[in-house]
Computed example of a mutant assay.
Amino acid sequence: MSRILLILAALIGFAAPAHAYWEYGHETVAAIAYRNVTPAVRAEIGKLLARQALLETPTCPARTIEEASVWADCVKTLGPRFSYAYNWHYQNVSICKDFTLKGNCPDGNCVSAQIERDVKLLKDKSVPVRERVMALAFLVHFMGDLHQPLHAGDRGDLGGNRAKSTYGIFSGEKLNLHTIWDGYLAERAGTTPPSLIRAYTASERAAVDGGSVEDWSRDSWQVAKLAYASAHGGEPCGPADQMGTLSEAGIEKLVEPARAQMMKGGLRLARLLNEALG
């Protein structure tokens, strides 16, 4: 069914992915986290989301962690009310220079800084409930964003939004690297067995959930290099106007890295939720 939906989307000019990352990828990251937090933290998440009406966004509910995972994108449709958060979803760290967040996160307006801020808000029970509910929704979403590599790495093209590329046999004006990693590749990776949504062992969690948010930023930035290189014959920093090409064989090689990003995002989010709400 997912392949059929993919083909249908292609035939209408890639107007929208069958499951954009902001749906499929984010919900997968959230579901992994929910399965891997402690029972006590799961209960705390439930208590906070039970108060989601305080957000006063009825067209963008956050009743479950999956709904919360897409709330931050949904509220973009509400106009200027949440426009202050636009830059919080990404950080344009050049893949063609040494990694640094300095200068790439002005005044804390980037995804990694907002993740750290949201954790602090969740930890502080003196913060009004409404603000803690919002912090939870933002945190769940931003951890998904950070692990979509083209929200973490860039080469002056808006995280691949201006990087045209084919995807297997498909091409189109609206198809670019960001769209591919947001939607088509995310869906293909997430639906490839075995399911990513399960309880992971302690050793599996320990292998990926250590380090800091900056470490995770660097990790996703490295995968962004792979994203560009895969479409440009192994050269991540080729000419900016060069049309990218992802063959079927190339796509197959990206499935596991894309799955790993979702898994890492979910387990790292679980760690932060355990620390903030445990």
Rank of each mutant, 00 (worst) to 15 (best):
R117E: 14
A50E: 15
A72N: 10
Y24P: 00
D215Q: 03
K120Q: 14
Y24S: 00
L277K: 03
F82D: 05
A16C: 11
A113T: 10
G160L: 01
P239I: 10
V223W: 10
A258N: 05
E116R: 01
P106N: 11
G210N: 06
I4E: 12
K97F: 08
P257G: 10
F99S: 03
N104W: 06
A50T: 09
G160A: 01
A135P: 07
T38L: 04
A68Y: 13
I32V: 13
L185H: 04
I65L: 14
R130M: 05
D107G: 03
A72G: 10
A33V: 10
D73H: 02
K47L: 11
D157W: 07
A15S: 11
P236A: 01
A258C: 03
L158Q: 14
R205K: 15
E275A: 01
Y86H: 07
S83L: 02
L49T: 12
L8R: 12
I95C: 14
D73F: 06
M243G: 00
C237E: 00
M1S: 12
V41G: 00
F99Q: 06
G108W: 03
V213E: 04
S230T: 05
E66I: 08
V29Q: 01
L150N: 06
Q222T: 03
G211V: 03
R155S: 09
E67T: 15
V223E: 12
S203P: 10
P80K: 00
L121D: 13
G168E: 14
H232C: 08
R51D: 13
G265R: 05
D215I: 04
S247H: 04
Y200Q: 02
L177E: 12
L277E: 03
H19Y: 15
Q148I: 10
G238E: 13
R132C: 00
I115W: 03
T191W: 08
L150R: 09
L254V: 02
R205G: 15
S126C: 04
R218G: 15
E116S: 03
A43W: 10
E44Q: 14
G144P: 11
L175T: 12
L122Y: 14
K97N: 14
R81I: 05
D157R: 07
